[in-house]
Simulated scan of single mutants.
Amino acid sequence: MKKRVLAMLLSMAMTATLLAGCGSSSDSTGDTTDGDGAKEYDVLRVAMMPFGGNVPAQYAYDQGYFEELGLNVEFYQFANGAGINEALAAKEVDVGVSGLAMIFSLASGTCKMIGESQVSSAMGVYVRPDSPILDHATEVDGTTIYGSADTVKGITVLGQTGTSSQYNLDGWLGMFGLTEADIEFVNVGLGTDMTAFLSGEGDAIAASRPYTFQLEAEGYVNAGNFEQTTDTVLTDVIVARNEVVEERREELVLFMQAYEKALEEISADEELRYNTSMDYFKNNGRDYSEEDMRNEMKVNDYITTAYMSGEDYVFGNAMVKIGQFYSDCGQIEPEALPNVAASFDASIIQEALGITFDVAG
């Protein structure tokens, strides 16, 4: 098995409407047999981005778990989920390991969701401690949400389009009867937005980890916690193109077996998870301090076999809520919304692990 990592340094902008479908580039088709009759799989092209859900994939590769199962995996590194969506649509990759942005690939009807990797938390809309937004407070499920229509309308918010942070922002605005049309949302690269905000640019920042930890340490205030503003427990996901699910199911089952084996190992060993995560992020252009990584590990739980076996677990539940939200906002056409629930294919991970659970929809 060989590895190829393609660094995508520029974020691709997410389109406001659905991806029209897969492109016309050539597609890998499955497997062959060698002279001894042993099965030889074609390259399985996996799109990744630097976040916690891809740490198990990298660990599985480094430990040889994919190779042990006969898989031929290549990693393609992207800056964000928007770029992964475009690569899936163009048939440049077969599998995507990402987050909320995958909702657009699912709604397009061209991909299936075959797994969930981690519960993603510690996000919010942050303001300066002297912001007039803090003059108005509301309690939601024991958490204080700050702002009002009068204090929020017209502000400038820094962040990235097509991300969970933008979803967080839109949920926060919605609590005051506002939309992005009522503010100025400036799409700035991850990290660059933080630098700009700390230097005095903008009135608020829609932030994600590890920057939320740093903002709180510097005294900035979370005006809109993700879970309370969106009423969603966000899970990151694994998707595959429809053709790959139909024609290469055996490989996907094996891929999920190797991925979950790695996930279970690093989830059970705090120091292994810490060291593996620090190496992965550093090698992919994101430097974490020890404190930030420890904080991230506290708030993000991997979706283990035990987690999926819990009575409250429902595969795809978060994506149903996210799809409805984007449909209400006009970013997913109403006729495309049913594609989201129809895209859930839990059978691959269930076969890989030998378990069953409920599926949303």
Rank of each mutant, 00 (worst) to 15 (best):
G189N: 12
V186H: 07
K112R: 14
L263M: 10
G124R: 03
K39I: 13
Q214N: 05
I183M: 12
V152A: 09
R286G: 00
N187L: 11
G189P: 09
G330H: 00
S108W: 01
D236R: 06
A262K: 09
Y326D: 10
G83L: 04
L254W: 07
G162V: 11
E218A: 09
L69R: 15
E260C: 04
S148T: 02
F281Q: 05
G99T: 01
A268N: 09
G171Y: 05
S277P: 03
V152Q: 06
P50Y: 05
L69Q: 11
L71P: 03
A47Q: 07
N168Y: 07
C111H: 08
Y211E: 07
G109L: 04
E180M: 15
F344D: 04
N284C: 04
E250A: 13
F185W: 13
F78K: 08
M256G: 04
D34H: 12
K39Y: 06
S11P: 08
V320Y: 14
Y288A: 02
I205H: 01
V97A: 07
A262Q: 10
P129A: 09
V237E: 08
A90Y: 12
T138C: 09
K112M: 03
D150K: 14
G35Y: 12
L263N: 05
I155Q: 08
E180P: 12
E296T: 05
A38Q: 10
K112F: 04
M308S: 15
R4L: 15
Y326Q: 08
Q228R: 06
V253I: 14
I155Y: 06
L337M: 06
C22N: 15
A57K: 11
F325V: 12
E290H: 13
M308L: 15
E227P: 00
P56A: 10
E184M: 13
G202E: 08
L254H: 11
Q350F: 01
N283D: 13
E201I: 02
T151W: 11
V97Y: 03
A196K: 15
G21E: 15
